[in-house]
Design a protein around this nucleic acid. Structure first.
Lengths: 210, 210, 210, 210
DNA sequence: TATGAATGAGAGTTCATTCAT
DNA sequence: CATGAATGAACTCTCATTCAT
């Protein structure tokens, strides 16, 4: 028991230290960008020695990837396929819940959002591939939902791939605005509502008559 | 006269040389990203000497900014406020024309698009400010159009700022997909049509009845 | 008594531990060389903690010196001056015995031999001085033997210093070959015989007639 | 012509610069050893900037290898197979000439000799392989000469491989002594003579009678 | 105007050593 | 006595920029 306890405490401490460094690296990367952020910046802000950094991460790139992994993993958990089985909640409500879970997380961690939206995009092939994989999965999910919707008569026939891109784009841009703009932020529910309505009905006043 | 002519020819030559370097830099930046692209990469692909580069540009950053300026300037020209004066074309047609002009350019110059969407985003404060200014102008334009539309009864009442972000987001994402995906590209007109319809009517089948 | 016994046992344990670490360090140094071998390599292969290492040795250099000391001390013991007192064995037999004792040890501990011949040579002033001292002693011993031999009419007159170097060189090179070549090793006695004959008579077929 | 001249001068200048750096690196490596010599040491002694170094050599290792290449190449040129064709000089004279050419070069460039004998030996697998190849070639050459000599009745029957090692060893050790000892250096001819005689006749006074 | 050798600040990374537990 | 997390000096290498030709 004490032995195990010791090891556990030990592991927890290591984990805690690692998270502490990750926390400061997140700030630094989000503020200065990957390339303009130096390992020196990170260790200074974390208050650790150079060597300590390399005790927990194999390289500057490694710690960046850890952060990127973190966002993507969290987002993957928050984006759930629409459940169409009998007794499942209203599909539209499920869509709205997805939007809510995603935006909630991104707004709650603006640095990670910046890293996802601004830094990871143009870094190199490696991160491009990570993002590609992630966004492709998301797009496929949206596309399939649209196809289901069309079959059910809920969604109007359309080029699902293009429309899926549109929907992804609205999410990205709104998330970006929410994390960049420091003022005039409407309550998150309002944003979600607007986002949802825009995707559902567009901007036209009486689209049915057109 | 010959003097003047000489100078003019001279200036034209300088301009041509400059554009030549810009052309190759565009390829290099779009492919490798700002930081991973070295001045060596640019001068090698342009076939000029190191010193020559600094005869036309003051720094690596300078040439990148020139490229960024180029996209933004071109896009600014292609995005025109909706003309509501009597005798002007149908507002919706004007909107669609705007979308068309923008996408046309971006698809026609995928390298510049990549630079705009991927590289410029997380570079530093400087380029962040340039983009901010540009996108703010675009967002304001969209917002004002929405407000007009609401007043005219064409557009349903909504949070115009958020909806403007949504619209901007769809444009960005679709442009990105168009320039990244090398295959399965539908004809540009189809994309424009889908984009336009999505913004106008959303995805809902019979939104009027809801 | 138990106290003393305790201390003795204690000291023996310490000594055993020390030797254990020395043993693994020997493998590591001989395989990777002094500089490419890290303290991490040593403690990992020895299965001890970082701090433990510094309980038994003051530095990486210290443990290397200990190993070097070990070889030199052993070799010094195995190289014995030729005993010319009446009743002593045949001088040539004594020479051959010397060769035998040295080669026997070096072949038996190839790692130490590698450290002696390859690592210690170009390390720094410190080890250079250790080797210098050792080899000088050996050379002097050989030289004095040659002088004796000349006086006794056994050895032809020659520049004893240079010839001593030659003899030392043959020993070094043969030892190196013996510990480097993993195959085709002739029996040690054969090697000793050849080495001895070469030093004694050279390669010439009938040197007496020349 | 002027064009070609320009290019030639240019190339010559580059070559000169390279050699200049090589010259200083040689001193530094021979004095401090590969690992204790830093690139800073080299550029300081050469009086050039950090970047300049990497203009002429790709890495610290690269410049060391260049030096090692230099010795080995030169030595290969100076070691010539014994010519047994009719009318060729006396084989023994040829052997002595080989010894002379090799020692001459090594004595003339003691730094390179130190690098060859002390630094390159225990550096790593890479340089070990280079040396192995070189020494194997030399050993084979000696061995073949011995075999010829045996067939011609000039050389007494023996284990040629072992004896070849002995001969190589005498050369190495004598070269080492010559370049290490700063005083008491006998004239090179004397050394060559002694070395030659030792290899030929050994140390025994009248080996024929034994 | 064009060149490209030279520059040097600054980056990421390693590793022998220390010391609180 | 044993541990291993923490340290930081020192290393090699890169690359935007300059300037004499």
């Amino acid at each position: 028991m004490p032995r195990i306890g010791g090891v556990v405490v030990h592991k927890e401490l290591k984990e805690a230290r690692r998270n502490q460094i990750l926390f400061f690296a997140k700030q630094v990367f989000s503020q200065k960008g990957y390339h303009n952020a130096s390992v020196s910046d990170i260790i200074e802000s974390a208050g650790i020695a150079r060597g300590t950094f390399y005790l927990y991460f194999t390289s500057k790139r490694d710690i960046f990837d850890s952060l990127l992994d973190e966002v993507l993993k969290e987002l993957r958990q928050r984006i759930r396929p629409i459940d169409l089985s009998p007794g499942a909640p209203d599909p539209l409500a499920q869509v709205k819940a997805n939007i809510g879970r995603v935006l909630e997380f991104l707004v709650h961690d603006p640095e990670l959002t910046k890293i996802l939206l601004h830094q990871a995009a143009g870094l190199d092939e490696r991160s491009a591939a990570m993002l590609q994989t992630f966004y492709d999965r998301v797009l496929s999910l949206i596309e399939r939902s649209l196809e289901h919707g069309i079959r059910m008569g809920l969604v109007r026939p359309c080029r699902t791939r293009i429309v899926a891109s549109c929907i992804l784009g609205t999410m990205k841009e709104v998330a970006d605005q929410l994390t960049t703009q420091r003022e005039d932020l409407p309550p998150l529910e309002v944003v979600i509502e607007e986002l949802f309505n825009f995707g559902l009905r567009g901007v036209f006043a009486r689209s049915a008559t057109s």
